[in-house]
């Protein structure tokens, strides 16, 4: 029973991290219809940067996070204005942006490999120590991860609802021509969405980096997990992505407990296919915002 509860807790923690990771992806898709194949690598690059500043350079963790986020913003703005903006003006924009982000992911992996080598690394835990709960021990870092995820989700909700840019992002997601006729500068909102998504994704990578290990290669795994969550929850739907992330986090933990880690991928795939059969638009439908 304790093993079951332990694994359920760990599933919920991982699920909350997946939720943060999937949010950037789903919002980016919902607004711009760009599916970011470099998504996982954006997360990994941010995690590596934090590791580099905090661990290798020996500066503090907050400094590392701020540095990583600044790089994320620059990267997002560069990617949008330098490439995506032009690609979106083509008739084959969907495939073009898909391939471009794929190429970007490879370049990111190559850069990480050259700069930091292939060995396994992890982001230092934010908090040390652990607490005893009635079913077992929970590390303070896990508690921090849960708190951080909840805070981030609430912040995203507030951003989308309350700020002008957030409202404009939802507007573009719900009707691109509608957004055009009310005078929203689509390019600016797309660029803002890229920045927003890269920052969220980067943060999720840093949080995941404290919980699991990372290599330059792991971006692909994170990317595909992000995909399944987002597709499962309904592309562009934030609540759907959060729900799907928790569901898959728990499925993953339980499958690991009862069948072994090797069954994780087949289990994800089966869940995914079944879900798409039942609800082709995702569990909460393809609604946006």
């Amino acid at each position: 029973m304790d093993a079951f509860l332990n694994s359920l807790t760990s599933g919920l923690i991982v699920g909350s991290l997946y939720a943060i990771m999937a949010m950037g992806l789903t919002i980016l898709y919902g607004v711009s219809h760009v599916f970011n194949f470099a998504h996982g690598h954006v997360a990994v690059v941010a995690a590596y940067l934090v590791w580099f500043v905090a661990d290798r350079l020996g500066l503090s963790l907050p400094v590392g996070i701020v540095a990583a986020l600044l790089v994320m913003i620059a990267l997002a703005a560069g990617t949008y204005w330098g490439a995506i903006r032009g690609l979106l003006r083509r008739s084959e924009w969907a495939f073009g942006t898909l391939l471009f982000t794929l190429g970007l992911a490879i370049l990111a992996e190559y850069a990480l490999l050259e700069l930091f080598g292939p060995r396994v690394k992890s982001v230092p835990a934010v908090l040390q120590g652990s607490v005893r709960l009635w079913f077992g021990r929970l590390t303070l870092n896990d508690l921090f991860l849960i708190a951080a995820s909840v805070v981030l989700m609430l912040l995203v909700g507030a951003f989308l609802k309350r700020t002008l840019t957030g409202q404009a992002m939802r507007a573009v997601a719900q009707s691109l021509p509608g957004a055009q006729v009310v005078g929203i500068d689509i390019d600016r909102i797309y660029a803002a969405t890229f920045v927003f998504a890269f920052v969220m994704t980067g943060l999720s990578g840093v949080l995941l980096g404290t919980k699991t290990y990372m290599t330059p290669h792991i971006g692909w795994e994170w990317m595909i997990k992000g995909f399944v969550i987002v597709a499962f929850g309904g592309l562009g739907s934030v609540p759907g992505a959060i729900l799907a992330a928790f569901l898959l986090g728990v499925v993953e933990a339980l499958v690991t407990l009862f069948l072994g880690a090797i069954w994780i991928w087949p289990a994800w795939l089966v869940t995914f296919i079944v879900a798409l059969w039942i609800r082709p638009e995702g569990i909460l439908g393809g609604r946006s915002g």
């Binding site: 002008l164 409202q167 939802r170 507007a171 957004a179 006729v181 009310v182 929203i184």
Partner: peptide, 26 residues
């Protein structure tokens, strides 16, 4: 200059008020 398209292009998952608020975007 405001263009009112035949297709309307409202923001379907927003309220009437939210639509009007976005109308005043500039």
């Amino acid at each position: 200059v405001a263009y009112i398209p035949e297709e309307r292009y409202l923001f379907p998952d927003m309220t009437v008020f939210e639509n009007l608020r976005l109308g005043a975007y500039t």
